[in-house]
Design a binder for these strands. Sequence first.
DNA 1: GCAAATTGTTTCGCTTCCGTTTCAGTCCGC
DNA 2: GCGGACTGAAACGGAAGCGAAACAATTTGC
Lengths: 112, 112
Amino acid sequence: MRPSQALRLWQQVLLSQVRENEPDLTMRQTAILLTIYLDPPPHTVRGLAARLNVTKPVITRALDTMGALKLVSRHRDELDKRNVLIRRTVEGALFVERFGDGIVAKAHELPI
Amino acid sequence: MRPSQALRLWQQVLLSQVRENEPDLTMRQTAILLTIYLDPPPHTVRGLAARLNVTKPVITRALDTMGALKLVSRHRDELDKRNVLIRRTVEGALFVERFGDGIVAKAHELPI
DNA sequence: GCAAATTGTTTCGCTTCCGTTTCAGTCCGC
DNA sequence: GCGGACTGAAACGGAAGCGAAACAATTTGC
C-alpha cells in the first residue's frame, strides 16, 4: 500500500462515517473502542489509560459517552472491587463489525 | 484485506496518533482536512459542507481550529468576493504526509 | 437600480471535552 | 485493626463543539 492510497482510503471511510451520521466519536474514543473490541479482556480504566498514554479521567469520560451510546458497559470487579471491568455489548460489536466492513468496502472501491 | 485486519490497522494508527500527542482532530475535522489535501482545488466552505453533508458553520469552525494549527489557510476569492478559498499549507502538507506514512508503516507491521 | 439569492460568519443556548485536583471506596502489609 | 497505596469517579474552570437562526457582504436577475 502506498501513502496516497492509504490517505484516500482513510478519507473515504471518514467521509462515509460523517455523511451517514454515525456516532461522532473522537479519535480517542474510537481508539478506546477498538482497543476494547480487539485486545483481549479484561479491560480496566487504568489499563486503557496506560495503553493510550492518557489520564484516567479521559477514559472515564469516554466510557460515559460510549456507555450512553450502549457501545460498552461497565461492571464492578467482584474479585477486586476497586476495579471496573469494561465489557463489550451487542450494539458495540455490531458497530465495530459494520465499521470494519466499511473499511474493506472502501478499500475495494479504490483505484489501483 | 479482511475486516479484522482493517480494524486492527485502524486501531494501531489511532493509537499512535493518540499516544504521540498529534493534534486531536475530530472525525469531521480529519475528513475535511483530507478532502482539502486529496481532492483537487478550489475548495470552498459551501463545497466542503456539501461533500460532507454537514452545515456550513461546521466547516467554518473546523477551519478556525485547523487554521489556528496552521494546517490550512483561508483567502477571499477576488473574482467572487462572497467565496472563501481554502488553501493548503506547508505544515498541513507535512502533517498529511506523516499521517499517510504512518498508515503504511502500521500496515507493514500487521500480522498476515 | 434594486429586490432576491448566495456565501460565509456570527450569535445563541446547550452539551461535551480537556487537565488538574480532590474524593470515596477498596486492598494490603504490618 | 489501621495507615498507606491504589482505583475509578467527581468537581472545577476553561475551551471547543453542536444545531438553528440571524447576520453582513456580495452577486445576480429583472
